[in-house]
C-alpha cells in the first residue's frame, strides 16, 4: 500500500498522488486495489447533433427575422417560418424528453398540438378550421393510436389507463362545442365523440376495476 508522508495516511489503490494533499506517495501501488472505476469527464454523447440542430434553427430564425424586417410584402411568410420552427422544436422536444413513457408522450403531444393548432388558426385570421376539423380528427387518431401502442408494447393497464381516459375526455369537447352552436361542421365532431364514448364503454366494461384503482391512486390525498 502507498503512503503519504505529509498526511501520514496509507493510500488504497494506485492514484498518482495523495487524494488529500496531492503530494507525492511512497511505496508500492496496488493496481488491483482500486475501489472506484476511473471515469473520465466527457460531454454527453448526443450533444453534438443537438448543437448542430440548434445552430441551424438559430440561423433559420435569424434569416426569417431579417426577411420580416427587409421584405414588407413577405411578412406573413416570415412570421409563419418563425412560428413553424418554434412549434417543431416544442413537439420534437416533448417527444424526445418523454420517450421513456410512450403514452404520456402521446398525451402531452396532443395537448401541445391542440394549443399550437388553435394558435395557428388564430394567427391566420380565425377561420375555425382548427375546431371544426383538426382537433376532432387529432383526438380520434390519438385514441386509436394509444390503443394500438398499448397492445403492441404489452403495456400494463396502470401504464395507459389514465392517458387514454384523459384523451377520451378531450374527445368529447368537440361535441360539447357543437351542441353549444360553436361549430359549423358536424361530421368530425360527431365521429370523434362516438369513438370516445365507445372507448369509454370498453374501458368501463373491460377494465372497470383497474380504472377505478388507477383513479384512486392518482387522486389519493
Amino acid at each position: 500500500m502507498r503512503y503519504c508522508e505529509k498526511c501520514g495516511v496509507h493510500v488504497i489503490g494506485s492514484p498518482p498522488c495523495c487524494p488529500l494533499c496531492q503530494g507525492p506517495l511512497t511505496g508500492e501501488a496496488d493496481g488491483n486495489g482500486n475501489v472506484y472505476p476511473d471515469i473520465p469527464f466527457a460531454g454527453r454523447p448526443h450533444q453534438l447533433l443537438f448543437r448542430l440542430l440548434a445552430l441551424g434553427t438559430v440561423i433559420a430564425m435569424v434569416l426569417c427575422t431579417a426577411a420580416f424586417l427587409c421584405l414588407p410584402e413577405h411578412r406573413v411568410a416570415a412570421l409563419s417560418g418563425i412560428a413553424g420552427l418554434a412549434s417543431g422544436w416544442l413537439t420534437v422536444g416533448i417527444a424526445f424528453k418523454k420517450r421513456g413513457r410512450p403514452l404520456k408522450a402521446v398525451f402531452w403531444q396532443v395537448c401541445v398540438l391542440s394549443i399550437l393548432v388553435l394558435a395557428w388558426d388564430h394567427g391566420m385570421g380565425w377561420r375555425g378550421w382548427s375546431l371544426n376539423y383538426v382537433l376532432p380528427v387529432l383526438y380520434t387518431c390519438t385514441m386509436l393510436a394509444m390503443a394500438v401502442i398499448a397492445r403492441l408494447l404489452h403495456l400494463r393497464p396502470s401504464d395507459y389507463l389514465l392517458y387514454l381516459l384523459l384523451n377520451i375526455l378531450l374527445g368529447l369537447i368537440p361535441l360539447v362545442l357543437l351542441l353549444c352552436g360553436l361549430l359549423r361542421t358536424v361530421y368530425p365532431a360527431v365521429i370523434c365523440a362516438a369513438v370516445s364514448v365507445i372507448f369509454l364503454a370498453v374501458l368501463i366494461l373491460f377494465e372497470g376495476p383497474a380504472l377505478k384503482g388507477e383513479l384512486l391512486r392518482r387522486l389519493h390525498l
Binding site: V11, P15, C18, P19
Partner: peptide, 9 residues
Amino acid sequence: VEVAANLPY
C-alpha cells in the same frame, strides 16, 4: 488511517 478516493487527482 487508510484513504481511498474516486477522483485521485
